[in-house]
């Protein structure tokens, strides 16, 4: 019965992730329809560092084990995830200082919406990590916490795949072409 609930929850969460991916695809398509010309404001080394930070954070999600190891890994994921999110905030501040904003043009509007959608997901993921750390602290690894860990792992790794596409297309190609 518990294994059945477990696999059903994981599958349900997977279906949610798939529909979430379509949400990102819509914002992605909007951005690519609206933008034109080369964007010179992006700092590629900065975005690259951001990608590597998030990659390592999602890599750490694959090693959950006993209570202490899991808590340590969740803490590690939280630190790197918070670094990723604050790098995104720093970049937004830089872009606003350079004279762009949500209201500048359709392309920048789509850019900020796409990026802050990732930021919103990352922020929810960070909150989830904190709540899960507290639950594991008090209850240990139980069937319900291990189910939540499995969902968190999928969520975090899925968000990293979305970020890979944003880094490749919005940053790398956007800085190069337009």
């Amino acid at each position: 019965m518990t294994t059945d609930t477990h696999s059903k929850t994981i599958f349900g969460f997977w279906v949610f992730l798939m529909s979430d991916c379509l949400l990102f695809a819509s914002f992605f398509a909007t951005y690519f329809v609206l933008h034109q010309g080369t964007v010179t404001l992006f700092s590629l080394p900065f975005a690259f560092t951001q990608s590597v930070v998030f990659l390592i954070s999602s890599f750490a999600a694959g090693f959950f084990g006993d209570k202490h190891k899991t808590l340590a890994l969740l803490g590690f994921m939280f630190v790197l995830g918070a670094l990723f999110l604050s790098m995104m905030g720093y970049e937004f501040a830089q872009l606003v200082q350079a004279g762009t904003s949500w209201q500048t043009s359709g392309a920048w509007s789509a850019f900020f919406t796409l990026l802050s959608m990732v930021g919103l997901h990352a922020a929810v993921g960070l909150l989830w990590i904190v709540v899960l750390m507290l639950q594991i602290c008090f209850r240990g690894i139980t069937p319900s916490t291990s189910r939540r860990l499995a969902c968190l792992k999928l969520f975090w790794q899925f968000l990293n795949i979305v970020w890979v596409f944003i880094f490749s297309f919005v940053y790398l190609l956007g800085a190069q072409y337009g």
Binding site: S58, I161, V164, F165, S168, F169, L172, L173, Q176
Partner: peptide
């Protein structure tokens, strides 16, 4: 060629993560 290369590298990474991580 650059666009094709970037698309291929991104898809490759998505596949690697889907199989090796997920």
């Amino acid at each position: 060629i650059l666009i094709a290369a970037i698309i291929a590298l991104a898809l490759g990474q998505a596949l690697v993560q889907l199989f090796c991580f997920m």
